[in-house]
Amino acid sequence: MAAGGDHGSPDSYRSPLASRYASPEMCFVFSDRYKFRTWRQLWLWLAEAEQTLGLPITDEQIQEMKSNLENIDFKMAAEEEKRLRHDVMAHVHTFGHCCPKAAGIIHLGATSCYVGDNTDLIILRNALDLLLPKLARVISRLADFAKERASLPTLGFTHFQPAQLTTVGKRCCLWIQDLCMDLQNLKRVRDDLRFRGVKGTTGTQASFLQLFEGDDHKVEQLDKMVTEKAGFKRAFIITGQTYTRKVDIEVLSVLASLGASVHKICTDIRLLANLKEMEEPFEKQQIGSSAMPYKRNPMRSERCCSLARHLMTLVMDPLQTASVQWFERTLDDSANRRICLAEAFLTADTILNTLQNISEGLVVYPKVIERRIRQELPFMATENIIMAMVKAGGSRQDCHEKIRVLSQQAASVVKQEGGDNDLIERIQVDAYFSPIHSQLDHLLDPSSFTGRASQQVQRFLEEEVYPLLKPYESVMKVKAELCL
């Protein structure tokens, strides 16, 4: 049975990233139509530049190519590739079939990587351009969430054990800070992308030097003109047959890092959902379990974690691919890159769409948070109580021993009897502590235990987050809708 299948058929496997999760716009960027249309555009740009620099290419040939950029006979191309065992030459023939007058000058002087690699770089750039505003929107939604809850005390956790208090907004800023680093890295790697350009079979530009009869300047002009037509500021000066596969490492490393950030955020949300302090959106008709109707599973956060793990592992592909590119190139890269580049971007696209949807509907339960604080705060307040007693004339050592005994009794009630923490009640009825009984409410005010959390939130948002989001103001209103 021949390899390949009808990918629109229910009898043929289709990647869930495309069929179930990723956005239509990201799927289109990695589609065959987008790819092969870009090949034709690159052939047109090459012909236009070659004509401008004096090669015998007519206006009629150029116009014929322009008129057929979208006229792609995919069936013919597939048949040609089956016959020739070469995808680029299959599309040269297919393009030439609908451009008979231009057929002889299509791909003039070029090698397969002229269309293959340059198209990949265009796709990487455009895919990054799709991700950047999506990530900015996630940051914006979380920034709104953090600002609104900047002063809401909550129990902090280290080692997932109760620690000092923080605020809900401050905790959210930990998430935002990681995503801001990801946004900066995505922008950097996007701006650092260079075009492969017009380089020939081993990167020496020998074929173009021959076409222009040894004119170095025209060869350099050709490279520059096509690079500018493709919208790049610069091209690699040095290439082998391909652009260095280190570029793929750079791009997928940034995406993998984004995956790590999203995994951490969504894990926190899942843990908070278990504590009943916070939940992701839950639709009115949504079913959490087929057997347990009360369940409210954090399905979206779980999906993000599941896909983020996949995204983090994909960076190993370009690392290994770059390491086995012998001399000017081997074909070890080809099949692998067809999979890992598309999957990385479709996965990143999915987790950003999902995280935006989550961040637009996060639900906080202040009463649950308050109750958990009441359970733990008495123990945390013991040092403040000791200091207040010393100020009232008591002995630190005597007070410490009193607190120690009462704390152990209260802990026994919590752990052995399943009761509430009654340390404060014990202190309130103990005559030894009568000098500070009137101060206990103040000493137990949760806001006095959150330090500068709310001020940190305000400063972080104003100095770091809002300036970073400013270039994306025009796209901030787009909502994230999930079908599944």
Rank of each mutant, 00 (worst) to 15 (best):
G4H: 15
G4K: 15
G4W: 15
H7C: 09
G8V: 15
S9G: 04
S12E: 14
A18L: 14
Y21E: 00
Y21I: 00
P24G: 10
P24T: 12
P24S: 12
C27D: 15
C27A: 14
F28Y: 12
S31E: 08
K35H: 12
K35D: 03
T38K: 11
T38G: 04
T38I: 13
L42C: 11
W45G: 10
W45Y: 14
L46A: 04
A47W: 00
A49M: 01
E50S: 09
E50T: 08
Q51H: 07
G54E: 11
L55D: 02
T58V: 10
E60T: 12
E60R: 10
Q61V: 08
E64L: 10
M65R: 01
M65L: 12
K66E: 10
S67T: 12
S67M: 14
N71T: 10
F74M: 14
M76Y: 12
A78K: 12
E79T: 12
E80N: 11
E81Y: 00
V88G: 05
V88R: 00
H91S: 12
V92R: 00
T94G: 10
G96D: 05
H97K: 13
H97A: 10
C99Y: 01
C99T: 13
P100V: 10
K101H: 10
K101T: 14
K101M: 11
A102H: 02
A103F: 09
H107Y: 02
H107K: 00
H107C: 07
G109C: 02
G109D: 00
G109A: 06
G109S: 03
A110N: 00
T111E: 00
C113W: 02
Y114T: 04
N118Y: 03
D120L: 07
L121T: 09
L128C: 13
P133K: 14
P133T: 14
L135E: 06
I139M: 10
R141P: 15
L142D: 08
L142Q: 08
A143S: 13
K147Y: 12
K147D: 11
E148N: 09
A150R: 15
G156P: 00
T158S: 12
H159P: 00
Q161P: 01
Q161Y: 00
P162K: 00
A163N: 04
T166G: 08
T167N: 01
K170T: 00
C173G: 08
C173E: 02
W175A: 01
I176V: 11
Q177G: 13
L186M: 13
L186D: 05
R188W: 02
R190S: 11
R190M: 12
D191N: 13
V198K: 03
T202A: 10
Q205V: 06
A206I: 03
L209W: 10
Q210M: 06
L211Y: 07
E213M: 15
K218F: 11
Q221M: 14
V226G: 02
T227W: 07
E228P: 01
K233N: 09
K233Q: 13
R234Q: 10
A235G: 12
I237E: 07
Q241T: 00
T242L: 06
Y243C: 15
R245K: 09
K246N: 02
K246A: 05
V247E: 13
I249E: 02
I249T: 07
E250D: 12
E250R: 10
L252V: 14
S253V: 09
L255N: 08
L258I: 06
L258A: 11
S261P: 03
V262P: 01
H263V: 05
H263E: 03
H263N: 15
I265Y: 14
T267G: 11
T267D: 00
R270S: 05
L272V: 12
N274L: 07
K276C: 02
E277C: 04
E280R: 04
K284A: 07
I287W: 02
S289P: 01
S290T: 10
K295Q: 04
R296Y: 04
R296A: 07
R296I: 07
S301K: 05
R303L: 03
L307A: 14
R309L: 05
H310T: 08
L314W: 03
L314Y: 14
V315G: 07
V315C: 10
M316R: 05
M316Y: 04
D317N: 10
D317M: 07
P318N: 05
T321G: 09
S323F: 02
V324C: 15
F327G: 10
L331V: 08
D333M: 06
S334L: 04
L341D: 11
L341N: 12
A342L: 06
E343S: 09
L346H: 12
A348F: 04
D349S: 11
D349G: 08
D349M: 08
T350Y: 12
T350R: 03
I351Q: 07
L352A: 10
L352K: 06
T354W: 05
S359I: 08
S359A: 07
V363G: 03
Y365S: 07
K367L: 05
V368S: 07
V368D: 01
I369S: 11
Q375C: 07
A381T: 06
I385Y: 12
I386Y: 04
M389Q: 09
V390N: 01
A392N: 10
G393A: 05
G394L: 13
Q397Y: 04
D398M: 14
C399G: 07
C399P: 03
E401K: 13
E401D: 15
E401L: 08
I403G: 05
R404S: 08
V405Y: 15
S407P: 00
Q409H: 10
S412E: 12
S412W: 13
V414W: 06
Q416E: 09
Q416T: 08
E417Q: 13
V429C: 15
H437E: 06
Q439G: 08
D441M: 07
L443K: 04
L444C: 09
S448W: 10
V457Q: 04
F460M: 06
F460N: 01
E462W: 12
E462S: 13
E463N: 10
E464I: 07
Y466V: 12
P467N: 07
L468R: 08
P471N: 15
E473I: 13
K477G: 10
K477V: 15
E481W: 07
L482Y: 06
